[in-house]
Design a protein around this nucleic acid. Structure first.
Lengths: 231, 231
DNA sequence: GTCTATAGTAAGATAGAC
DNA sequence: GTCTATCTTACTATAGAC
């Protein structure tokens, strides 16, 4: 990977490998669909979106670079002007997605006070995000094993941060006596499982809107930690 | 697929495509590791086990038939004496695994009385099964999309049966006033999500034994349906 | 920056000897 | 029933024209 692309992890911008063009800026405001819109140039964005759709539908290894090029309306060689390899496409998608998830948990958690409201809001929005963007989240949750070892390790660090934020809410709740949780780490895992697994099974048309599902899952989450429901 | 292999779906036996040898008999008693032991001849069993391990570690498409052959101590051509294609290996694994899951839910549910005890026992054993055999369950839960359309459809029917059994327990509990569930289908999905997702993250050495995790998850399940804990 | 053309490799599956 | 050898296809990635 070039120094430019490597900078993605450190600075929060994503830079085109070949052209040096800044691909992503301000990705941390707004939802992911908007973030894709910020990727420049156009072709790099179309390629990334085509890759997300193909990886979600068929998996990383079953997707060919020709599929991706075709999805972006380009020749097979066009991919390599903007990305060094198929794996770099997966890495960018996975990195952007995980940063978005981490930021979502952080900001939602900071936007309300008290473990009960925090847990409810986090699970609600995390679930809604997995449902609304199930194409993207399916890739970022289930194609990790196709990343290079270095990229895989870096993504796992982000995942541990996310886990840590949720676990802290549970520990706060237990400490304040509003949650009753026999095993905080395992219950944290179970809560995250609920939202993550939405990426596996959710598809439209769906029984519930993304927001409604988020509400239902947030209510389940409060039950799981032995909390009173929100008023 | 040959008529012999096609019979697998109808009769509950799995037959070697080339030799006509019965591969699986009595698969429905004992756990899956024992079921693998029943596969005959030896080479067919070794190939199936090698395929499970490779598919779980790398995914279906990233696994080569050469990987599988090597894992079974055979030449690449040896695979095709026992299986018509790589997809047939995945299909056998997925079929055996889903039948096992369906039978597990059915039998555990029938072995106790009352929705509370039934739900607790089903989630406990389903979770334990996903944890103990996370290699197998990772394949059967996450590689469905690599099946042929016909096989995929057949497996989805088995999955609907499993879902229906759990949903019935919830409906019984609501009907008897021991559960309080605002949305039975969605809560059923959430409960199954918990156990399924174990296949994604569980690995040894683990924080908890498979049985302990099953206990913890069964207790969570009762909370999710608004039930009193078991005495 | 995009294309056509293709190099180089590796895959799934089969032929035919033993 | 297993092997060696190989056919055929399709893939990732690059070269070089424009």
């Amino acid at each position: 990977m070039t120094p430019e692309a490597a900078d993605a992890t450190a600075t929060g911008t994503v830079t085109d490998t070949a052209t040096g063009t800044v691909l992503l800026a301000g990705i941390f405001s707004g939802d992911l669909e908007e973030a894709w819109q910020e990727i420049q140039p156009d072709t790099a964005r179309r390629l990334l979106i085509a890759a997300v759709e193909a990886f979600a539908a068929r998996g990383f290894h079953a997707t060919t670079t020709r599929d991706i090029a075709r999805g972006a309306g380009m020749s097979p060689a066009g991919v390599y002007v903007h990305y060094r390899s198929k794996e770099e496409l997966l890495h960018q998608i996975t990195l952007i997605g995980h940063r978005h998830t981490l930021r979502l948990v952080r900001e939602v958690s900071a936007s309300v006070s008290g473990p009960t409201r925090q847990l409810h809001a986090v699970i609600r929005d995390l679930t809604t995000w997995h449902a609304r963007h199930h194409t993207t989240t399916r890739v970022i949750e289930y194609e990790l094993h196709s990343l290079s070892p270095e990229h895989h390790t870096a993504i796992l660090a982000l995942r541990r941060e996310i886990d840590g934020l949720v676990r802290q809410i549970l520990e706060d709740g237990v400490g304040q006596g509003v949650f009753e949780v026999p095993d905080v780490p395992t219950t944290t895992l179970a809560l995250l499982s609920l939202s993550v697994d939405v990426a596996r099974w959710y598809h439209t048309p769906a029984r519930h809107s993304e927001e409604r599902l988020g509400q239902l899952y947030a209510d389940l989450a409060l039950r799981m930690v032995g909390s009173e429901p929100l008023p």
